[in-house]
Design a protein around this nucleic acid. Sequence first.
DNA 1: CGATTCCATGGAATCGATTCCAAGCCATCG
DNA 2: CGATGGCTTGGAATCGATTCCATGGAATCG
Lengths: 352, 352
Amino acid sequence: MDPATIRDVAALAGVSAATASRVLSGNPATSPAARARVEHAARELDFRPNAQARALRRTRSDSIGLLVSDVRNPFFADLAHTVEQAALEAGYVTLLGNANESEQQQDRYLDTLISRRVDGVIVAPQGDGSSSIATLVARGIPTVFVDRTVPGVDVPSVTTDSDAGLREAVAHLAGHGHRRVGYIAGPPTASTGRERLAAHTRALAEHGLDADPALVVSGDFQAASGSAAVRSLLELAHPPTAILAADSLMAVGAVRQLQERGIRIGVDVAVVAFDDIEWFSLMNPPLTGIAHSVEAMGRAAVRLLLAVMAGERPDPVRLPSSLVPRASSDFAVPARPVVAVPPPSTPREQPS
Amino acid sequence: MDPATIRDVAALAGVSAATASRVLSGNPATSPAARARVEHAARELDFRPNAQARALRRTRSDSIGLLVSDVRNPFFADLAHTVEQAALEAGYVTLLGNANESEQQQDRYLDTLISRRVDGVIVAPQGDGSSSIATLVARGIPTVFVDRTVPGVDVPSVTTDSDAGLREAVAHLAGHGHRRVGYIAGPPTASTGRERLAAHTRALAEHGLDADPALVVSGDFQAASGSAAVRSLLELAHPPTAILAADSLMAVGAVRQLQERGIRIGVDVAVVAFDDIEWFSLMNPPLTGIAHSVEAMGRAAVRLLLAVMAGERPDPVRLPSSLVPRASSDFAVPARPVVAVPPPSTPREQPS
DNA sequence: CGATTCCATGGAATCGATTCCAAGCCATCG
DNA sequence: CGATGGCTTGGAATCGATTCCATGGAATCG
């Protein structure tokens, strides 16, 4: 009933536990005879080594932890998939934790991972240098940041260079005649939230678009906040003709809200989202996205982590992003916004 | 540098390891004085108990395994999320494995979970009674099937009753004048593949629809097979006017293929999918789905697993499904199929 | 042919936390 | 006043696999 131990295997094979261990872990100091008998005995008993005991003795567990922000976000679901596959190829199993965009739940999971003595951790960090992240670094646990970073914490990272993609997006919108672009920002507590907003602001300036601060609304990377953001953008005296969302879930929330109000995307208003996920091309209308390779990000993260575990200090990786234009933004801006607004009696900062 | 052990804590607190252990695990046989000193010392050293050592001694790891078929399938991503939350509430961490719809990878993960001595496993099984599943049962490891089952393996399960939803779907299609419904089946190696096909066949008979076996094409629950299925359905001499896919990913593949061919969904052909995921309502056109509650399924699975771990033999749970009609199927069938077909010279089994 | 090396092997220690068991202490009771 | 009982405590064994160290036998070399 109780699972077989290596001693049971050894007894059945007529050797000592030491020899059985050597055979089963591929130590060359074993005779062919012993090898045959032990292997046969192990198969006979359906022996599965107790990973805990093994990990206790060697000081490594052959497992890594992956902490993502939200598994239901397709971007992170794909990331989890890629990381898991890449880790498996390198002989590691992945323990997946889901912070659910909450710093508290992130800490709880990191504690668990530390307790389980994972050999390394890949984390898309919440907030700024929470206690658990500090612990991770202080203990010298190999760590890699993915997608996001934490300022002041010196850890290798794999991030997306939002600049190119956002510049393309803004250029694209400007080229179609948009002057006022509503921006649904990520939370300032996430590095991606801050960086993308900064990139967006720079791009606006480059193209001489309206820099009205009222056009920037902050969300939390989840769908509901996208809806809320659209609501407040539409209340502006001078609402935007295009909306740019800092991630796919907020874009979806925005789309829902626009649909509920009967505002036609791709006709009355343009919508562009950071991230480009499979579903975008099937939506009504197909959504313009800013693409970056999840596959590349996941594989790079595992590669960096393996390097850190090997004692190296790998350089950070920055992946490119680029615009994938689709129907949601591929139209010329209408002469007048369809949303009822008072005539712009004092058109401010609109260069002719 | 090396992480602090309970002996370090005990030394700093001036007590024995035994007492330190008792304090830290909440054993009441401790004096307030000892409690205070040990707790202070543990905080001082930032002590994290080695979960492996603890699990080795107690014969439980406070962790469960969850093996899903494909994390990139939104249905399973949601399931993973729900199970994880419910397990966390019960004090368990979840080790997520992804079989990627491959029996081999499933076995590899189950082996890992067995080696790590998880306290229980929730699995959406691939194939029929693979060796690892047999091992699981033979070892008496608490196991619960979710979404799918394996015939002949007596394990509590949480499944969806496909019958009601499919009957509604077929009635809905019949009501709109469809006689020939193409069915994209799941693989016969999955219980859901078989059951849904059987339910569909029954529903066809009930409504007197065309039971042409050529209208049934098998896929593998992944997107590419949905595209392939549509391709072969359209080659029929007498192609269907409606398409029913046994899961969301195959439906997406089907939609892509139809769009590529310029066939208008919701006008030229109806599309209905088993599963109803968030994105369906945003698609072009919104897709009719057969809904079942992932949340309920995940929570029930955890509840059942806890019961099995407590030595009970809970009854299986069967959750309802129901149709959510949307634009992709909400139209009357056109008088003649738009796809060019030879005139039906010998219309077979079409009751007037 | 004796001595040195090489190789396979077993005994025992080890990893870190838990827990059984025995012992010590204080208080209460007969 | 001695004894019994209730508490707290420490020593030591334990979980299962790995690994250091020593040993015995075979093989090789001078």
